[in-house]
Amino acid sequence: MQIDIVVVFFLLGFIATFLKSDIDFPEGLYKGLVLFLLLAIGLKGGSALEQYFSASLIIQVVAVLAFGFILPLIAFPMLRYFGQLDRINAANIAAHYGSVSVATYAVAVAFLESKGVDYEAYFPLFVAILEAPAIAVGILLAKQRNSSVNLKGLLHESLLNQGVLLLFGGVLIGWLAGPQQMASIAPLFKDLFHGALGLFLLAMGQIAARQSKHLIEYGTFIATFGILMPLIGGLLGGLLAWSFGLSEGGTLLLATLGASCSYIAVPAAMSVALPQANQGVAITASLGVTFPFNVLVGIPLYYSLIHKLLFS
């Protein structure tokens, strides 16, 4: 089994932190890399959007949006009934698992590119679309029956968070600029993408190792849920992509999006909308369990299943 080069960066960060090494990754660089990756992914999708724009794409967008609403509704009852979590924390974690991880998506893209597998280039649009619905569903699930909902705040947190804004912004800029103008910024946003992703994953490995230490504190339920939910989301995402008739690469990307969970946009939005929720549990589940699982086990597994079951 050949391991993808960007995943090795993740392992390096994880092992180094586990062995208590003193790699000091600057906070500013980490934040800068998040901005870079969001914009780079958005621009790449936007520049390819024109050639794919059709009625079937609009149908896919609506279905993907519905998918984003459904995922937290699957996670919530599991967290409430089996995890015996209170309503607010269950809704908070459900929102994390209904949303998507741009880094996991980027790892899946790097995986496909290393294998030379094509995919639909408009996928960043789906990434942006899937960021928002889960936040709204999570806030609605957390509200008690008789309590009112601040619709303005809810819309603001769902639609104007950093992830959604930069991804949509990137898609829009890429779409308006077109492939010719995009060539002028390609040396930064295209050529450096894999290197920047490797650096970002080094930091993610460190964060994941730190978060996984908290697993003992929160119990094995969070670990079990953090493995089960990506399998459910990945299966549903794969089936949705298959029903669209997407390519092998596109099917893997939608399965990966279904399997991934947010750790940037949703925690920021939910800490404002639900300040009483324990963000530590959700971050531990998403960063300490699901992200490493998807990067190390999930993506190669989803690809193997998709390749052999649907495309051979």
């Binding site: 089994m1 009934y81 089996f82 995890g83 015996q84 119990g219 094995t220 339920f221 079990t224 493995i227 089960l228 399998l231 190390l296 086990v297 190669p300 597994l301 193997s304 299943l305 052999k308």
Partner: peptide, 29 residues
């Protein structure tokens, strides 16, 4: 019920992983 869920789910994951691996998919992990 939390413990029962954990045990059942983990056994299910082992079963799925092993079955797929036997049929040639990369699911030993």
């Amino acid at each position: 019920r939390t413990q029962a869920f954990e045990l059942f789910t983990s056994l299910l994951i082992v079963l799925i992983g092993s079955c797929f691996a036997i049929f040639g998919y990369s699911s030993w992990m």
